Simulated assay, not measured.
Amino acid sequence: MILRTAILDDEPLAIEVLQDYVERTASLQLAIADTDPFKVLKLVQENKVDLLLLDLQMPELTGIQFMKIVSDSCRIILTTAYPDYALESYEYNVTDYLLKPIGYERFLKAIEKTELQTTVQPDQTSEAYIFVKSGYKTIKLNNKQIVYIQAAGDYVEYHLADGSKVLSLDNLKDIQNRLTTSYQRVHKSYIINMEHIISIERSRITTSLKNIIPVGDSYKESFFERINN
């Protein structure tokens, strides 16, 4: 798997070092390396970036602000000279936190960690259940129980067929990699279990729980192509 990689940092020297690391790593392909957050943001929002190497302290747009905008659009490895933001940063889609100066060996460990979290193992799509961490407990959920999954701030809610729900500190992009093929992302805030769809009217899905889930504009093509096929 080749990860299209973006570098965003306000220090040209830091960009130069990271760009060298990316070009030396076979599994990475440089998409952009820039000090301008808005150039990088444009590529991320166009889904042309799989991995972002992101500095935290920048004058125009801080790393935290940037992560709030891009949400779970891509994987993020933070590259910073400041350890103080480590705890806050893990509320976002961060796979690792690299402190400057960054050595190539430590950089590779972060990439390996990212690849492990990104790769879907063959048997994951055939599992009848998933394990979900909720608070201090890890809960086993049967895939047939789950009607839909909804983003709720820094958490996600698993809505179950019996009307109950399970709250987990997770994000939809990570969850997609653990789900069976019966699921479909239909909105930036929703993944739905196709088996629990009762009807579809225009861009509104009625589930077995009798609630309505919208189909987002950027997900319509893939969703209706699957329905039509």
Rank of each mutant, 00 (worst) to 15 (best):
L3S: 12
A6K: 02
I7F: 12
I7N: 09
L8I: 13
L8G: 13
L8Y: 08
P12G: 11
P12R: 13
P12T: 08
A14N: 12
L18E: 08
Q19M: 13
E23M: 15
E23T: 14
R24M: 15
T25S: 15
T25I: 09
L28P: 04
L28V: 06
L28N: 06
Q29L: 07
D34R: 10
D36K: 14
F38P: 06
K39W: 00
V40M: 06
V44W: 02
E46M: 13
E46D: 14
E46Y: 03
N47Y: 08
L52P: 04
L53W: 00
L54Q: 00
Q57Y: 06
P59A: 07
F66E: 01
I69L: 05
I77T: 04
L78Q: 05
T80Y: 00
A81S: 09
A81G: 06
A81C: 03
P83W: 01
D84L: 05
E88N: 06
S89D: 01
E91Y: 07
Y92E: 08
N93Y: 04
Y97T: 06
L98N: 02
L99D: 08
K100I: 02
K100N: 01
P101K: 04
I102V: 15
Y104V: 06
K109E: 14
T118M: 08
V120L: 03
Q121R: 14
D123P: 05
Y129I: 04
I130V: 13
F131L: 13
K137E: 12
T138H: 11
I139Y: 10
K140G: 07
K140E: 08
N142G: 05
Q145K: 15
I146R: 04
I146P: 03
I146H: 04
V147L: 01
Y148I: 08
Q150T: 05
A151H: 10
A151D: 10
G153C: 05
Y155T: 00
V156P: 11
E157R: 09
L160N: 07
L160D: 10
S164C: 03
S164W: 01
K165R: 13
N171M: 02
R178E: 10
L179H: 03
T181G: 10
Q184W: 02
V186F: 00
K188Y: 08
S189F: 01
N193Q: 03
H196F: 06
S199D: 15
I200Y: 02
R202S: 09
R202Y: 09
L209R: 13
I213K: 07
P214N: 13
P214I: 10
Y219R: 06
R226P: 03
N229I: 11
